[in-house]
């Protein structure tokens, strides 16, 4: 458990001491998030992310025994839709032109992407 552990109470936002993330981790996260970063950016982010994460870690001190994680912010149950095709044009198909209208690389009715090797 990361939260709480090492979080020195109400960590002051400008003075996070728990440097949990190193630059390698920053690069790993960036890669998971598919965002190319330079070394300079990684270095800058290391500090920023540690500052923010050090600060949010104060949540670890909250006693949540017996508390269920919130699921619906306002009590409400999931509605289900009828199995009807194209009942509403806004959520139905048969609008290829609209689907492809903003495509960077439309190709014969497809979206073109750099060749993928599976």
């Amino acid at each position: 458990m990361r939260c709480g552990e090492g979080a020195s109470g109400a960590a002051s936002p400008d003075k996070a001491t728990d440097m949990a993330i190193d630059q390698a981790t920053v690069r790993k996260i960036a890669s998971l998030a598919r965002i190319a970063i330079t070394d300079d950016e990684a270095a800058a982010m290391e500090g920023e992310l540690n500052g923010i994460l050090g600060w949010v870690e104060q949540l670890g001190e909250v006693d949540v025994t017996g508390v269920e994680p919130m699921t619906a912010v306002i009590p409400n149950t999931l509605r289900l839709r009828d199995d009807v095709v194209d009942a509403d044009p806004l959520t139905g198909g048969n609008r290829r032109d609209d689907i492809l209208a903003n495509a960077p690389e439309p190709q014969h009715g497809f979206f073109g992407v750099p060749k993928v090797i599976e």
Binding site: R2, L32, I35, E68, P69
Partner: peptide, 26 residues
């Protein structure tokens, strides 16, 4: 995006995200 990716990543999900949703319930 980076923070969000990190708090959902393997091993950290419960400590961050689940904990946050519990505190949110409180």
């Amino acid at each position: 995006i980076m923070i969000g990716t990190y708090v959902l990543s393997a091993g950290f999900y419960d400590a961050y995200y689940t904990q946050a949703q519990k505190v949110r319930a409180l």
